[in-house]
Design a protein around this nucleic acid. Structure first.
Lengths: 236, 236
DNA sequence: TCAGAAAGTCAACACTGTTGACATCGCCCT
DNA sequence: AGGGCGATGTCAACAGTGTTGACTTTCTGA
């Protein structure tokens, strides 16, 4: 039936689109492709390999047309936002990223790009590596948490968030004063806004690690935690 | 055999301790408890219910003996570290946290405690709520990512990380200069250290949102956080 | 052309969560 | 004390999963 890694992954995405990611089984995929389920094993070592392939496919969209000029902060943010976007589309994607280091070209390119811009921000190499890990973890992870919600309609999301807020608001004010007081603001914005808030704060923290330019007076960098607000960036 | 929700969860933790979390099946659990597998259905509606029970059990350890005095920052950090620890023990735990708001008393208490200390740090309520979401996401999520590694022996982890570093180090230096340059620092510390780095940076960023004490000269707070409005609703 | 590799098929294995029918135990009420 | 009755544990079975080995077909390249 002229199967190939590429056409199989196409089929996966169609099945996932239709039945959800959790419902993807090899037998169902085989039926969808008009092929025996085990034929897939001629192209992928096992299901993990297949899922990884799906992951790589989704990663392709992240780096295309990425602006090469602009503040390091904006570009890093853009990468993270896109990475999150890709992961939101396929909830279970995190399961593979989770399990290991980059194995495909797209992921290597992503790592490279991220590290390059962190170095451009004059983060010491060690900090740049740690920042890379932190950014990836926050991004991928928050996507994994938000994915189930992303698959619902905006109306459903709104209702669900409202209900959750209500749960907090109706707690016993004696026992849970802070929860009641903050209830109006919990789940009050979109999941994307919440992610961007955390991402911005993480980036704020990274700003404090930047080394001053070699030839310039270095009194600008404060040793402790500064809340310097350097790059005033426009929201891409 | 005098089964109960509590003793079953005990058995779960023992099996998980021995065979890893992914290997927990009802039949194996039944054998461990000296009981038919399906007897568990007399106490839990289904496996999800059982896993939720395990989750709640693990959350119990987070707040006990939590220092009540100390800087908001240290306490918040301690909560997050403990929360991460709890989640690392049970990889699949994230799947339920993921799916919703607090459902058990332990989680309400955790939210309350976290919000209280964020308010004590003089974060505006709206920011405190967003900070709460961000801290939870980073913590739970990073735990979900690191969990598979946590179930291995230190020696195995060391070897695996070394291999991953090697992958980056052996990339083509022309095409991936930043990756090669940073290779020695990638996966160079423990996952716990990487998490703490990201957490510290996030906390750094939160420091910048603190309001000055009412009676004190307020020149420390910068007037405008211009960037806060991103205003574009992402489609999802 | 024709050998040999690649690709697809089929049956089977060892698992998984879950359900319904059956047996048993212990507790409450008269 | 005895009768019921619900809670609990047992057993067999179902539908589903990923995966493997042996078999057959198809295609390619020397």
């Amino acid at each position: 039936m002229s199967l190939s890694r590429s056409t199989i992954i196409d089929g996966c995405l169609e099945v996932i689109e239709r039945d959800g990611a959790n419902a993807l089984s090899l037998r169902k995929l085989g039926k969808h492709l008009g092929v025996d389920a085990t034929a897939i094993y001629r192209h992928f070592r096992d299901k993990d390999d297949l899922l990884r392939g799906i992951g790589d496919r989704l990663h392709e969209s992240i780096l295309i047309d990425l602006p090469t000029r602009g503040s390091w902060r904006n570009i890093v943010k853009e990468i993270c936002v896109r990475l999150r976007q890709a992961h939101l589309q396929r909830p279970d994607l995190a399961a593979f990223v989770r399990s290991g280091p980059p194995l495909h070209e797209q992921e290597f390119l992503l790592t490279e790009t991220l590290l390059r811009h962190l170095a451009r921000a004059r983060l010491p190499p060690k900090d740049a590596a740690l920042a890379y890990h932190g950014l990836i973890e926050l991004t991928v992870a928050s996507a994994a948490i938000d994915a189930p919600m992303a698959s619902r309609t905006p109306q459903e999301r709104h209702d669900i968030y409202a209900r959750w807020r209500g749960i907090y608001a109706s707690l016993d004010a004696q026992q849970y004063p802070a929860s009641v007081a903050h209830a109006p603001h919990l789940y009050a914005t979109t999941a994307d806004d919440r992610f961007e808030f955390a991402l911005e704060r993480l980036l704020d923290g990274l700003e404090g690690l930047r080394q001053s330019e070699p030839g310039v007076s270095r009194q600008l960098t404060k040793p402790g935690r500064s809340r310097r607000r350097t790059n005033q960036d426009r929201p891409l």
